[in-house]
Amino acid sequence: MADLHGKYLVGVYDDDEVILHAISKIRKAGVKISEVYSPFAIHGMDEALGHSRTRIGIAAFMFGVTGCICALCLTIWTMGIDWPMIVGGKDPISIPNYIPVTFELTVLFTAFGMVGTFLVTNNLGPGVNPNMFDPRSTDNKFVMAIELGKNKLTEEQISQVLKDSGAEEVNIKQF
């Protein structure tokens, strides 16, 4: 048998509802789906594909905590320790006055940290060349990629399953 690594069967669908239901049928038929590409977010896609819930929120929370601690350290150290000064008759360390800056830095760290994590985990960045199975998947088509090397069924069998599930076209793509 020829090397099937990097050889994909690409099912092109016309409708988001059709592909969403096709996924469960195809998975039931014992076919392993590599990934699905769509022009917009489809709700229920993760569950259908069996993807686990993203943990990016945990990262975001950690960045937020970091930002909060950094901001408190900055304000307390500069105002109260490095060069203590009484402003407006208040204690040099007056935490309520530091809430705005602490809040802003918490938000700043969370947003940038989270977006940075997002770019890294999705391998997004300037100059990255995406593997596009079908350029229409950013326009109006919904594309399912199935790697032949990772499936037991033959090309013809998978192709038939894809067509039965409502795929408009089935193409072959080699990466």
Binding site: S38, M45, T121, L124, P126, V128, S137
Partner: peptide, 13 residues
């Protein structure tokens, strides 16, 4: 930035 619209990317997005 190399966006390909995969389901995983969309979920995180």
């Amino acid at each position: 930035m190399g966006w390909n619209g995969s389901a995983k990317t969309w979920a995180r997005y």
